[in-house]
Amino acid sequence: MDTRFLGIPDLVETPAVAVVVDVMRAFTVAAWAFAQGAEKIVLAESLDEALALKARHPDWVAIKDGPPAPGFDTVNSPGLLRSIDLGGRTVVHKTTAGTVGALAVKEASLVLCAGFVVAEATARLLRTRRSDSVTFVVTGEDGRADEDLACAQYIARRAADDGTDAAEFLRRAASSRAAAELAEGVRQGVHPDDVALCLELDRFPFAMVATAEASLMVLRPHPLSSQPDEDPVR
């Protein structure tokens, strides 16, 4: 499998298969949303679009980066989200990097969104798919965020060799600037457990597949228990 690791600004062509990585915190939050019962997650292009979707669908749950804001139900924090019952709900999600990266590759035949919490499920789906080429979108810091790059490299290696150990990749993520900013309270809308929750390897037994549904980009869980020949491609 040929792999590339690109930042969002480096995406000059549509990849065939894309794995969009945002460890701290968009796709850790997305995984927690599914664990809390969410049916699907709509990836919003902008805060205005997220608010417009929420206005049209008052029962949807709107999530954003940063501090709480009018019109949004909660913020992009796994520590805060884990106490919210999302059974059967639709989530509208807008973040600074993760959702932007997913929307940047929305024309790809397969778009996976990932963090350490769904790493093995993501790698297994890539192994099942047997893709010749996979582009890993490192969303943070224009492709320089070490927590995202470490996670992307780990998933790529697990897809090729399921004996790869995670320890060094997790260490890099724990030492990243994002981890320090979350731990030190530099970022807003943070729970004290956020860093630890973002580094929980394989907490959830599903990958997350984003597909176009009407005019929206929608993320759904893809369980490990799915049949090996079940193809999530649109």
Rank of each mutant, 00 (worst) to 15 (best):
I155L: 04
V137M: 08
C151Y: 06
E147L: 05
T122M: 10
R171P: 08
G140I: 13
T135Q: 04
E120D: 12
D148F: 08
C151I: 06
R124S: 11
F136M: 11
T139K: 09
V138C: 14
A156F: 01
T128H: 13
D161L: 10
A160K: 15
R172P: 04
T122D: 09
A159E: 04
T135N: 03
A152F: 05
A156G: 00
D162H: 06
I155K: 05
S133I: 06
T164R: 00
G163A: 10
Y154E: 00
D132T: 14
T139R: 09
E147V: 07
R124A: 12
E168K: 04
A167F: 01
D165T: 00
A152V: 05
E168V: 04
A145I: 10
L149P: 13
C151D: 04
A145T: 13
G163R: 10
E147G: 09
R144F: 12
F169N: 01
G163K: 06
G140N: 14
F136H: 12
R157G: 14
Q153H: 02
E168F: 00
T139V: 12
R127Q: 11
D142K: 14
L125F: 03
V137Q: 07
F169D: 03
E147W: 06
A123W: 07
D132Q: 15
D161F: 08
G143P: 11
R158A: 08
G143L: 08
L125Y: 01
V134G: 05
E120T: 14
S133L: 09
L125D: 01
R157H: 15
A156P: 00
C151W: 06
A150L: 01
E168G: 02
L170C: 10
D162T: 05
A152T: 06
A150P: 02
